[in-house]
Design a protein around this nucleic acid. Structure first.
Lengths: 141, 141
DNA sequence: CCACTTATCTTGAATCAGTCAAGATTTCAC
DNA sequence: GTGAAATCTTGACTGATTCAAGATAAGTGG
């Protein structure tokens, strides 16, 4: 993934290629599961003067078109990743909040068929596994 | 579920039986999936002078002991329910935010076995189905 | 290559759910 | 009934996210 790749991604979804968006894309790609503050910091190493608002806007826009995906586990602020469209899920550490990717056990679009969805038209199943990360379980308390 | 039942529930988990807690338990039981503000309002119909802080405290405490469960779908504030311990999940309407219960398709503790959990010790799998509720899909836009 | 339209960005203020803290009350065990 | 400790009230505060207005820059057509 290089600068031109990100530019192409933006063009492919008919979005204007702006420096803030490139910086955000690159930042999220380099720091999967980073929260907004970290994305802002990372983006600023590439483009020192980006406003936090531009980052928020970019993240929203990129999320809408599907170039980034946002996850908001309960008790955590929003986090972002560029791995999209492959229906993977996440393990979240209850203790330190760290996140790892998990391919679903049941194959593709798992659990997507709810037994009784009360007439809802379901288009996505989001799974969050809660537990303890290796680091936190080794260091008791 | 009557007042004495709620009192007993509190005693069973060694919590003091206070009027705010009873009001909150009853409110959540009567309004499944209600957000905090609604719980406060409902609790105040039973106990007019409860402080919002007491409701927050009660919700936290009751959640810790497992008498209520909290859900926080992305983009929504915290919501609460008294149906606990049966590993059910939720469908959330992207359009209006309404929530319905869903028993998991795969049986009990579904999907709980992630294929590769990166060394995490997983103790719970939370599933959120995203879609459109009957009302919103009938009324286009 | 230039001008124009409009999306996007900057700046700075505002919102709002949720939290913190100190002192007053209430619960429950004895 | 009494006392210790948990719980509640009051009121201020935090911090992630959003709103709004004007400035700037991307892409289009000439």
């Amino acid at each position: 993934m290089t600068q031109p790749d990100f530019q192409q991604q933006l063009r492919d979804v008919a979005l204007r290629v702006t420096r803030p968006r490139l910086a955000v894309l690159e930042a999220v790609h380099a720091h999967p599961h980073a929260d907004t503050e970290s994305v802002i910091a990372a983006a600023r190493t590439l483009l020192p003067e980006v406003s936090h608002q531009a980052v928020y806007d970019s993240l929203h826009t990129l999320t809408e078109v599907g170039l980034v995906r946002s996850i908001k586990p309960a008790g955590s602020v929003a986090r972002y990743e560029t791995r999209t469209g492959d229906n993977h899920h996440h393990v979240v550490c209850r203790s330190c909040g760290s996140i790892a990717d998990v391919d679903c056990a049941v194959g593709h679009t798992p659990c997507l068929t709810a037994s009784d969805s009360h007439g809802f038209v379901v288009d996505e199943a989001e799974v969050i596994y809660w537990g303890t990360c290796p680091e936190c379980s080794h260091r008791p308390q």
